[in-house]
Simulated scan of single mutants.
Amino acid sequence: MSSLPAGWYKDPADTTTQRYWDGEGWLGEAIPADAVPPAGPPPVEAEPPVAPPPVVAPQPQPYATPPSPPPGQPVYGPPPGWHQPPPPGWQQPPPGWHQPPPPHGWQQPPPPHGWQQPPPPQGGWQQPPPAWAYPQPPHAYVMPVPQARPHGMLLAGLGQRLAARLIDIAVVLLLNIVINGWFVYQWWQEFRPIYTHYVDQVMAGVEPDVLEPTGRMQTLQMTVIVIATLLWLLYEAPMTSSRGQTLGKMLMGIKVVGVDSTEPIGFRRGFSRWAQLGMWTLFWWCLVGLVIQFLDCLSPTFDPRLRQAWHDKAASTVVVAVPRGATQTVEAAPRGDIPGGPQ
């Protein structure tokens, strides 16, 4: 069963039309791709009334008892307690009714000339099961699951997202060089005598002392990490909240939108999206933050349907491609434009 929810999507069999997908297959007639679909599934067309078949008196015929299958062979038949339903219009014959005898002189017609009884099937043949034993498909034909298009737009490619993230990292790194550079220089001035003494001991063949940071080094280190976290927050969260694009996303032609609307997601959701990834910067000192951020950046590959990263799921957002000059040609229905429905 497909995980794509019900809604209106482009028909993979004819991309110039759109049809309603109910989660398992296509329903209803196709409509043009640029038409506004109804808010829900297409109406079910009433079938024309079928004239009842003429009433025909049943003519019971003698049936031969089928031969029993060989031992060990499976026996196919209706389930226990099943009875053949009577045809429409059939009535129970009155008591005492008997099959009328054939006309005088009637004989069984002979078989065609040269006809012979067909030989029995070879060993290993089995009686096929009746038609009711095969499951019936719920739809007339099976089509591939359509690709999710939030709000009628294509999902951003993984390469585009990676390139945009690398550009944003470079921008934040430049900001840290400008603002955090003094603190990093002070930390190096504090660490250089310790490092020089350690190298001298190694060159002299003496067992070196353990490198232990001073209290001022630890304070400077935490200051650098906190400032780096704040710079990342001030760079990414406001831009994502107001326009859905950082500098990297603008250059790569992608955008962050909510799964429920194309309106700006607002600062609350923008901060929630950034915090799922950026707050782990405070744990760089123990390397746990770097590992979790690395896995978060890889998480879109775990969601082949919407390519949502963990920070996208936290804010109910998706990243879509908005190349320059592109226009949206299909206005989706309330559920059709949001795979999964409103969050």
Rank of each mutant, 00 (worst) to 15 (best):
Q160L: 00
L162Y: 12
A163P: 13
A164W: 01
I167K: 04
I167L: 09
L173F: 13
V184A: 00
Y185V: 06
W188K: 02
E190I: 00
F191A: 05
F191M: 04
V199Y: 06
D200A: 11
M203H: 02
G205D: 11
V206P: 10
D209F: 14
L211K: 05
E212C: 05
Q221W: 15
T223I: 03
I225P: 09
A228R: 02
L233G: 11
Y235C: 01
Y235W: 06
E236K: 06
A237L: 01
T240N: 09
S242G: 14
G244I: 09
G244T: 10
T246F: 03
G248T: 03
K249V: 08
G253K: 03
G253A: 03
I254D: 10
I254L: 08
I254N: 12
K255R: 12
V256H: 04
V257Y: 10
G258H: 07
G258L: 13
V259N: 15
S261Q: 13
R268A: 10
R268Q: 10
S272A: 14
L277K: 05
G278S: 09
T281G: 12
L282A: 01
L282D: 01
W285R: 06
C286Q: 13
G289K: 03
L290F: 12
Q293Y: 08
Q293W: 10
D296E: 07
P300L: 05
P300M: 01
